[in-house]
């Protein structure tokens, strides 16, 4: 009896959480011209159409580039910071931790607006660079946190052992620390990539004419057109995220880092 109730509750919760994706996948597979569920016949024409829309292609490339390079930059800044916060008795370590973690606490729309008004406009930064800076700042807290927690489990005396065996400090880091936090770094990359790729509020004010991230582009398209192509694109993006997470989980048990 209890068993039955358990699965009942879980079933309803999962339908609420996952059901909308099933609906959107099917709505995108409609043969008709309008967004509807159940779909008016099945076809893949809207899925195909998504790839022919020029602005989607451009914004997809931009979002990809921002997610990849923003996350890499965040890791380049974040790994040394995580290392220093773990291994050194730093003056003001708490302050540094708070500063680096802060972009996670403040609503993205505010970050975007503040950047636009006080950095991008006065310094005449191009839209692409502005987006790049914003996405890096956004991902940095995740990079530091995830790398930090995987470094936390790594004993400091392992590096000392490496040095006594002849390593320079740098070699001790690349030969001993890095191989052992590889999982954490990869997890941070994936988490950062997904966060950046899906990000809307930060990019809202920073996107300019012709330079839009994919989610912003989708919002704009939605306001004008009411056909199933957004549903199809949403479904494709969901599949992309699922694929990334699935591969990551298989490779390194991703979920323990989230």
């Amino acid at each position: 009896m209890r068993h039955f109730a358990n699965w009942g509750i879980l079933g309803l919760t999962l339908i609420f959480l996952i059901g909308p994706f099933v609906i959107i996948i099917l709505a995108g597979a409609s043969a008709g011209p309008n967004l509807a569920f159940p779909p008016e016949g099945l076809s893949l024409k809207w899925y195909a159409k998504v790839f022919t829309i020029e602005s989607f292609r451009a914004s997809f490339v931009l979002s990809m580039a921002l997610a990849v390079f923003g996350t890499i930059t965040a890791l380049v800044l974040g790994i040394p910071a995580a290392y220093a916060l773990n291994r050194y008795d730093l003056p003001g370590a708490e302050t540094i931790r708070t500063i680096v973690a802060a972009p996670i606490i403040v609503p993205g729309i505010i970050v975007g607006l503040a950047l636009l008004r006080y950095v991008v406009v006065p310094m005449n930064v191009t839209v692409t660079v502005a987006l790049f800076m914003a996405h890096t700042a956004l991902v940095l807290p995740y990079a530091v946190r995830v790398v930090s927690s995987s470094m936390h489990n790594l004993r400091a005396d392992m590096e000392e052992a490496a040095v006594l065996l002849g390593c320079s400090r740098m070699q001790a880091f690349t030969k001993v620390v890095l191989p052992n936090i590889r999982g954490g770094v990869l997890a941070a990359f994936i988490l950062g990539f997904v966060t950046s790729f899906n990000q809307v509020p930060v990019s809202l004010f920073l996107s300019g004419p012709g330079v839009r991230t994919l989610p912003i582009d989708m919002l704009a398209y939605m306001e004008i057109t009411f056909d199933p192509s957004i549903a199809a694109l949403s479904a494709l993006l969901a599949f992309m995220s699922l694929a990334i997470v699935f591969v990551a989980e298989r490779l390194l048990g991703f979920s323990r880092y989230v």
Binding site: F21, N198, I230, S234, S241
Partner: peptide, 11 residues
């Protein structure tokens, strides 16, 4: 959580 909020909301 890994899926675009735009997609999640559009549903």
């Amino acid at each position: 959580l890994m899926i675009s909020p735009v997609a999640r909301t559009y549903a």
